[in-house]
Amino acid sequence: MRYTVDTAVFAINSNIKFGILIGDNLKNSETTKDDEDRLRAAESKMRERIQADNVRELQSVSFYREFMTQAGINPNKFPPSVEAMFKRIVKGGQLPVINALVDLCNAVSIEQGISLGAHDLADIQADLEVRHSKSGDIFLPFGATEYEKVDEGELIFTSGNVVQTRKWIWRQSELGKTTINSKNIFFQLVGFDDKEDSSLIKAMTDIECLIENRFQGKCRKYIVDCNNTCINF
C-alpha cells in the first residue's frame, strides 16, 4: 500500500511533517487502570499549565489553525480536532474511556500537544493520500450509515475516493475507527519540526513503545515531508 502527500500540501507550508507508524498484529484490550491513570494524569497536567482561553496559543494548535486558514479552511468553524479535545479538558471535562489503544493515543496527543490519528487498516482498501478533494469523493461521518458527498477542493486524508478525515484534521470517518478488535493500525501524526526533541518525534517514540510493549505488536515508522512525499508499506 502507498501513502502520498500531494505536493500542493507542501506548497501551503514546506515545513509540515507527517509522522507515520504502522502497527502490525496489535493486541488491543479494554482499558486497564494503568491506561486510564496515564490518560487522567495527562489531562490533569494540561489543566495545570493551560487556561481555557489560551488553548489556541499552544504552538501546535496555532500552527494547525494557521495552516488550515492558508488551506482555505475556517478553523473557527472547523477547528482541528485536538483543539476541541484540549478545550474540553482544560474546562474540566474528562475524555470517555473507549478502549486501551484509543485512550493511550489520546494520552500521547495530550502529553505532546500533537494531532494524532489512528486508522484501522481493515477498513482501508485503497492507497492513502493527503490531497484536495475531487468529484466522486465520499465520506461516512462518525456514527452514520450513509455516505455524504465532499465538495471539490477541500483538503482531506483519503483512501482512494473514500475520505478518512475531512477538513484536513477536523473530523474522522466511521470507517477506520479503532475498536477493541483492531489489529493493524495506521497512525498519522502531524508536526512542523522533526528534530530529536520535537513533539512529533517524542510522540512517535511514545506510540512505537506502546505498539511494541503495551500491545505486543511490531512497528514500522516513517517521516513524510517535502523531500520525501510518499512511502510504500
Rank of each mutant, 00 (worst) to 15 (best):
Tyr3Asp: 00
Thr4Ala: 06
Asn13Gln: 10
Ser14Val: 12
Ile20Arg: 06
Leu21Trp: 07
Asn25His: 12
Lys27Ser: 10
Thr32Asp: 05
Thr32Ile: 01
Glu36Ile: 14
Leu39Ala: 06
Arg40Thr: 06
Met46Glu: 09
Met46Tyr: 08
Arg47Asn: 03
Arg49Ala: 10
Ile50Thr: 14
Arg56Ala: 15
Leu58Gln: 15
Ser60Val: 05
Val61Pro: 00
Glu66Ala: 15
Met68Ser: 08
Thr69Gly: 14
Gln70Leu: 15
Ala71Leu: 11
Ile73Gly: 03
Pro75Gln: 13
Pro80Trp: 02
Ser81Gly: 07
Val82Asp: 07
Val82His: 04
Lys87Thr: 10
Lys87Asn: 08
Ile89Met: 10
Val90Asp: 01
Leu95Arg: 14
Leu101Val: 12
Val102Leu: 04
Asn106Met: 06
Val108Lys: 07
Ile110Gln: 09
Gly113Pro: 05
Ile114Glu: 02
Asp120Cys: 01
Asp120Val: 01
Asp123Thr: 03
Asp123Leu: 03
Ile124Thr: 08
Ala126Glu: 14
Asp127Glu: 09
Leu128Lys: 10
Leu128Ile: 15
Glu129Arg: 12
Val130Tyr: 09
Ser135His: 11
Ser135Pro: 03
Phe139His: 02
Leu140Gln: 05
Ala144Cys: 09
Tyr147Lys: 15
Val150Asn: 10
Val150Thr: 13
Val150Gln: 06
Ile156Ser: 03
Thr158Pro: 04
Gly160Gln: 07
Val162His: 12
Lys167Val: 02
Trp168Lys: 05
Arg171Leu: 13
Arg171Gly: 08
Ser173Glu: 04
Glu174Ala: 08
Ile185Gln: 04
Ile185Leu: 07
Leu189Cys: 00
Gly191Thr: 03
Gly191Asp: 01
Phe192Trp: 11
Ser199His: 10
Thr205Lys: 14
Asp206Tyr: 07
Asp206Gly: 06
Cys209Gln: 14
Leu210Asn: 00
Glu212Ala: 01
Gly217Asn: 03
Ile223Leu: 14
Val224Glu: 04
Asp225Cys: 13
Cys226Ser: 15
Phe233Leu: 12
